[in-house]
């Protein structure tokens, strides 16, 4: 009988790893705390750089799960390490054994309410990048009604020591560029401002996206952070910022403000790390055995991790890591059988 491999987290990373492991002859078990598989991908409409439909990617990932056992709405109670591997016990009392454990529990979006000066949850016309994707997917929203001026605020909860996050969330710059262009397509008459500190468009074709945003769509990029947002009597927003290139303070009236919330560790990361004795980085993400040579392996034997639980990543990066982790698990188990540990 095929060996069970437990995967914690059923997002793109967990799904891809499960498929690879199944193809290598194992019987993976995905444990997902949410009601459905797919993770954050479910919330997104289109993906940069080409604007591929997220739905399509999701469909691809969630189909063909034959030979993979998966459980949703799962609540993990304890994880124990034994000589033979790991035992995961759920709150229902069911427990699973596995010679190796793969963590793909991903990330969560920075809760924008924490940055109170931007007024998310206080002013109606302040939304997040995730809210905007929902709008793109559904095509309607109570708040977004023909906005004339739209603002995008980069780095909300990223590179901001005031909220305790020093790290760059890596993917939001590209997302912001993508979303700004999409908004311009929907509302061609709108003026769109993007407030940024640095634009980090690192991937292939991302720079082209940015140039298109400026040339074709006329998005106005303003280097400077938004300091505070207040509401005008007519319900529109007043944004105070600084244009650091012109060395001038700015005051803009805006109809819709989109906060590009960053990527922070999933709540479960801290408790899993404690139970499994994994070291966390200062940013709260798992620390792999070696950031260059062994990015998918934990210090302790038989424990692997992939995807955004070790830091912000794009979907293709996540998927490659998922496959890499699956192969590493395979190699680890082969070696262990040969040396008779298991």
């Amino acid at each position: 009988m095929a060996e069970n491999i437990i995967i914690i987290g059923g997002g793109p990373c967990g799904l891809e790893a499960a498929k690879t492991l199944r193809d290598l002859g194992y019987a993976p078990i995905i444990l997902e705390k949410k009601q459905e598989l797919g993770g954050h991908l479910r919330k997104w409409d289109r993906l940069f750089p080409e604007g591929v439909q997220a739905k399509q990617v999701l469909k691809e990932l969630t189909s063909g799960l034959k030979g993979i056992e998966w459980h949703t709405s799962v609540d993990i109670e304890t994880i124990e390490k034994s000589r033979k591997g790991y035992t995961v016990t759920l709150s229902t009392g069911v427990s699973y054994n596995s010679p190796a454990l793969l963590l793909t529990n991903g990330f969560k979006l920075f809760p924008a309410e924490k940055k109170e000066e931007y007024g998310y949850g206080i002013y109606d016309k302040v939304i997040t990048n995730a809210d905007l994707e929902q709008y793109f997917a559904k095509g309607k929203d109570n708040v977004i009604k023909k906005p004339k001026t739209i603002g995008f605020v980069h780095c909300v909860g990223s590179r901001d020591e005031k909220v305790g996050n020093r790290q760059c969330s890596k993917v939001c710059c590209a997302t912001a560029v993508k979303q700004a262009c999409e908004m311009k397509e929907l509302f061609p008459d709108a003026t769109i401002y993007s407030f940024y500190m640095d634009l980090r468009l690192f991937g292939r074709n991302y720079e082209d996206m940015y140039l298109t945003a400026q040339k074709k769509y006329g998005i106005r990029y303003i280097r400077g952070r938004v300091s505070e947002v207040s509401e005008d009597i007519d319900g529109s927003l007043i944004v105070k910022a600084e244009d650091t290139l012109l060395c001038k303070p700015l005051r803009l009236k805006i109809d819709l403000l989109v906060l590009m919330t960053g990527i922070v560790p999933e709540n479960s990361s801290a408790s899993l790390a404690q139970q499994l004795n994994i070291e966390l980085g200062e940013d709260g993400f798992y620390k792999p055995k070696d950031t260059i040579l062994e990015p998918c392996m934990a210090e302790n034997n038989g424990l692997f991790m992939a995807g955004a639980c070790t830091g912000p990543k794009t979907i293709p990066e996540t998927l490659s890591e998922a496959r890499a982790a699956a192969v590493q698990i395979h190699n680890y188990l082969n070696k262990s059988w040969i040396s008779g540990i298991l």
């Binding site: 109170e116 000066e117 007024g119 206080i122 002013y123 505070e228 947002v229 207040s230 509401e231």
Partner: peptide, 9 residues
């Protein structure tokens, strides 16, 4: 208080 709009409200 401007940075914490809830208070002003």
């Amino acid at each position: 208080s401007s940075l914490t709009p809830v208070i002003g409200r």
